[in-house]
Computed example of a mutant assay.
Amino acid sequence: MTIPRPGGAAHRLAYEYVVLRCVPRVDREEFLNVGVVLHCRMADFLDVAWQVDRERLLALDPRIDVDQVCESLAFVEAVCAGHPTAGAPAAEPLTQRFGFLKAPRSTVLQPGPVHGGVTTDPGRQLERLLEQLVG
């Protein structure tokens, strides 16, 4: 979704993102990056991309419920998409949904700090961040 501007050049759009971390054992302070949530207000864009490496998570804690981690990430997807199954947060405007997702609320799935950048294509930038930071 590149946004053109007069003269054919693409607009550079500011965005914010958080990396979602799975922290199987908070006491050990070990985590594995499992997803990225990207919000670009100027493009009316909010989405998540995620991938869970089951073996790496189980190496951190063999007792972790990997399916539950995936369900939590699916909930994040539903909030981003504004799907009714995500409840009240999904009904909010995109900026408020991003605020909800960047706030810590779980000990196992935690957002990292908010970072920012500029892009001409928020969807492609999300893919790049997933590749760099998770995959």
Rank of each mutant, 00 (worst) to 15 (best):
R25C: 05
R25V: 12
V26R: 15
V26P: 13
V26T: 08
V26A: 13
D27N: 02
D27F: 00
D27P: 02
R28H: 04
E29K: 07
E30V: 09
E30W: 02
E30A: 08
L32N: 00
L32G: 01
L32E: 07
L32V: 05
V34E: 06
G35P: 14
V36Y: 13
V36R: 02
V37I: 05
L38A: 07
L38S: 15
L38N: 11
H39S: 06
H39G: 06
C40Y: 04
C40G: 04
R41F: 03
A43M: 09
A43S: 09
D44R: 10
D44S: 05
D44F: 09
D44I: 01
F45H: 10
F45K: 00
F45N: 09
F45V: 07
D47E: 12
A49G: 06
A49R: 15
Q51A: 12
Q51L: 15
V52C: 00
V52L: 03
V52A: 06
D53F: 01
R54T: 10
R56L: 10
L57Y: 01
L58K: 14
A59G: 01
D61T: 02
D61E: 03
P62L: 11
R63W: 09
R63S: 05
I64M: 15
I64V: 15
V66G: 07
D67F: 02
C70M: 09
C70N: 11
C70L: 13
C70R: 12
S72E: 15
L73M: 07
A74N: 06
E77I: 00
E77C: 07
A78W: 11
A78P: 05
V79L: 11
V79Q: 08
V79E: 08
V79C: 08
C80N: 07
G82L: 12
P84I: 04
P84H: 12
T85P: 00
T85Q: 11
G87C: 10
A88M: 10
P89L: 13
P89H: 08
A90P: 12
A91Q: 09
E92W: 07
P93S: 14
P93M: 08
L94M: 13
L94A: 13
T95E: 08
Q96P: 01
R97Q: 03
R97C: 02
R97P: 13
